[in-house]
Amino acid sequence: MTDQPGGFNALLAAWTAGPMLSIGLTLGAFIVAQWLFARLRRPLWLPPVMIAALLLAAVVAASGLGFERYEAGARWLTVLLGPATVALGIPLYQQMHHIRALWRPIMVTLPLAASLAAFYALAIAWLMGAAPMVLASLAPKSVTAPIAMGITEELGGSVSLTLGGLLITGVLASLFVDWCARWLRITDDRIIGFALGLNGHAIGTARAFEISHTAGAFASLGMGLTGVFTALFLPLAFWMI
């Protein structure tokens, strides 16, 4: 069957010669995920990124495409993460008057909260007897993926474990910010956005842009500052311990 002209494997080979199959699948999953997310009445515990990833993982595994071939094509999309990160600077500038008004609380909260985001998780994992490799992989859990991967490599952790930790942290942060804000009676989009970006990196920032433009700008600020701060101080702190 596989050697027939026009067989499934020949078709798969032709489709995966370029990146279009991966791009098409990712776009399709993204659009279906948005639709499903709206149909399910926007559940916080199941953000569109999680739905899209689950759909894609199922298709990639079941179709025989395999993750490596999928990823090679999808790289044409993920390279855009670079300019997309730069693009976060524009809402940051447009919301600068809000940020100026809050610069003092931000400058006090940032180093404390960014350090604690790493410290809490590390202390719990350490108390539960996790290996040093696991600790090094979890340390940059609140940092945006490209920076986190660099930190993990520097600390000697597993990049795959870090990416898994990032996904879980991003989803949990979106959920917990919603709960805690309600519990603490916080309705200020600036504070909610900042907490989302600081704790939940890109996933939290994507969630913040669903809330409002202001929340999104503060999330970008939180994500950017946490990334820079953690990249500079975490390797130093790890080295001292």
Binding site: S22, T26, L27, A29, F30, P47, P48, V49, M50, A52, A53, L54, L56, A57, V60, A61, F67, Y70, E71, A74, R75, L77, T78, L80, L81, P83, A84, A87, L88, P91, A145, S160, L161, L163, G164, L167, A202, I203, T205, A206, F209, G216
Partner: peptide
């Protein structure tokens, strides 16, 4: 670009299920 941020991080998240 920001409106498709979720689309751009999705492939990386898919990888988590395979590791």
């Amino acid at each position: 670009l920001i409106s498709v941020l979720v689309l751009l991080i999705t492939p990386g998240v898919v990888g988590v299920f395979f590791i």
